[in-house]
Amino acid sequence: MADPQRPDLDPASVPTWEEVAHTHGRFLYSLAYRLTGNHQDTQDLVQEVLLRVRRGLLTYQPGNLEGWLSRITTNTFLDRVRKQKRRPTQALPDDPDRVIAGVPSLEEQMAASDLPDHLQQLLADLAPDFRVPVILKDVLGYSYEEIAQQLDVPIGTVRSRIHRGRGRLKAALTT
């Protein structure tokens, strides 16, 4: 799958820490930003991820480097969420089919010039358990199976969380 947010990778070799940072730093930063929603937390997260990467490279087996980096990033993010007990997430409406009359359609929303920022804010308002799989699926394009492996949860749980996460986003966009 060609995706501009996913860098080209050489699965046959083990890169150095510096190579990972320079080659995949943009990927890590972009993913971290989608997870955290702000640059300060993103930079803290990426720093921590890079340290874990450096340690992990000692035992890394050549393979899906991108998936490995993504797993480290999401796990580090979730660890930080659990540890820091960040600001309470704002509960969004739980009914994905609820549409209020007279509000812009999704197509109209898509055309809005400030949609990326707005969408990012809505992502940030999602509970992390929904936010992470939605980002992995819809922003990065991973399969349900890959996400289940990364997050170490059943695939049914992944599907459910993504469905509910999307539903909350839809409800928020149409209110």
Partner: peptide
């Protein structure tokens, strides 16, 4: 919508 979000450069 989500797939169209742009990359965020450091």
């Amino acid at each position: 919508l989500l797939g169209g979000l742009p990359n965020v450069a450091p």
